[in-house]
Amino acid sequence: MTAPIRELGFAEAIREALAIAMAEDERVFVMGEDVGVYGGAFQVTGDLVQRFGEDRVVDTPISELGGAGVAVGAALTGLKPVFELQFSDFSTLAMEQIVNQAAKLRYMLGGSVSVPLVVRMPTGSGLGGAAQHSQSLEAWFAHVPGLKVVEPTTPYDAKGLLLAAIDDPDPVIFFEHKLLYKTKGPVPEGRYVVPLDRAETRRAGRDLTIVAAGVMAQKALDAATILASEGIEAEVIDPRVLRPLDMATVARSVTRTSRLLIVYEGAKSFGIGAEIAAAIAEGEAFGHLDAPILRLGGAETPIPYSPALERAAVPQVEDIVAAARRLARGEA
């Protein structure tokens, strides 16, 4: 309970979770492209290969589909793989195994098997990766029954959620926003888990509710600080887990604030925001809404390369401030 708490980077927190899980359980192993001596495309696996050896930190060929399938097969037969895709964009190559196989095997086979698989993938824009290295595809996976979809915001949650994901008997898709890798925060030593079904209220407020995950939760908090100086108190809820989504926490908040803004990086239409907005509109919180629900999502475009364009294509702090202001002032 009283493990010492240090400041740790987001990537280090993930690596620490992997190391704890691997040290505790021989069945846990890491596989993916360049996860070994290279240390992972974003240096997340780092020195794990030196600590656990090449049998447990396995460099795969550049074979996303084959690698994903090997991970599914290993998970079916007694191992607990953590499969890293270098970019979430590359999940398109592995989709068959993730969506048709991993997500469905347990159900399709009447409960006689389970697939304890974690697929980690860096997501999002902000590093000039352009259209094929910057997408936010969370909603694709969140649409698939049988998968759980996680997206941490803080190093604390990254570690605790990843340990929970590895413990979980079913496939979990673990999104890591690239801009968060270098962020730091307090992380206790040793094992702890953050449950895979609970949102976190990152800031309390009375005037409106902002729901945002990952780097967008960070931006929403920055926006809330600016808003507070104008007398607008925004409540910021970080879902942490997009499937299953903790709508009860969002609904309770909206019941108090009467206003809801959802911020996400993926393209605005048919995204996370639509699901949250619809769930509120369908539920008891509807009668407490005193303004339309607003969504701030990514532009309906591939992510462009040029920095100014790239920035313009996804919600920024000032966009959140402007939208929240309109909502709180009854102008929306």
């Binding site: 509807f286 809404l289 005193d290």
Partner: peptide, 14 residues
């Protein structure tokens, strides 16, 4: 349809 009477928020209606 063309606006007919007042629109109101769900909370105002409640």
């Amino acid at each position: 349809p063309a606006a007919r009477g007042a629109t109101a928020t769900p909370k105002a209606r409640r």
